[in-house]
């Protein structure tokens, strides 16, 4: 932990701030949310890592996709993700967001979340233990340090493809595109 390193703070305050202050959007997408309350309360205390839950995506910079993603939830996930300000990080929690998990053959579950929004890291397991969230958080620190957690940049650059995938799964979306989707020549 280099939280006390003044040199690094002076060099890149934004990056250091991003690292040590993850505000998690308080949004239960699936059964994995049941692991979050013990994580943030007395038993495991996520606050010592600077991780606190917040109420709205406007304030958050970490999005935990906790559990399986149904088609209906996907709409809300995309909406929430788009409302989060840059820079923002996404972590898939549990095996369901990775490949559908035990719902691998369900007609109503999204199997590959990263087709619709960029995901910076995965926590495998069903359920993963709260400790694994901390491992994920510390791993995310390393990734931010090395400049590897760039999901939000990818989303901006490849927005056209993401939007296409989203509309394939959900039909026409009610809200306007976040970034311009047309070609520059148009």
């Amino acid at each position: 932990m280099d939280r006390g390193s003044i040199k690094k703070w002076l060099k890149a305050p934004g990056k250091m701030g991003q690292k040590y202050s993850f505000w998690v959007v308080y949004f239960c997408t699936g059964c994995g949310i049941i692991e979050i309350p013990p994580t943030i309360t007395s038993r495991w205390d996520a606050e010592r890592f600077g991780v606190i839950p917040v109420a709205t995506p406007r304030q958050a910079n970490l999005f935990l996709i906790t559990g399986y993603v149904s088609v209906k939830t996907l709409r809300a996930i995309i909406r929430t993700y788009e409302q989060m300000p840059d820079p923002k990080y996404t972590v898939g929690f549990g095996s369901c967001p990775i490949n559908g998990g035990m719902y691998w053959d369900s007609y109503n579950t999204i199997k590959h979340l990263d087709k619709y929004i960029p995901v910076d890291g995965w926590i495998a397991g069903c359920m993963p233990r709260p400790e694994s969230i901390f491992i994920a958080v510390t791993h995310l620190w390393t990734m931010i340090d090395k400049g590897m957690a760039t999901g939000y940049i990818k989303y901006r650059e490849k927005y056209k493809n993401y939007r296409k995938n989203q509309e394939e799964a959900l039909g026409k979306l009610e809200w306007p595109p976040l970034y311009p989707v047309g070609d520059k020549n148009e």
């Binding site: 934004g14 250091m16 701030g17 991003q18 040590y20 202050s21 505000w23 910079n61 300000p85 820079p87």
Partner: peptide, 16 residues
Amino acid sequence: SQPLIDVIKLINQESI
């Protein structure tokens, strides 16, 4: 120092 860290982060974060 956590509130300070939070504020530094927030200042460097985009918003609407």
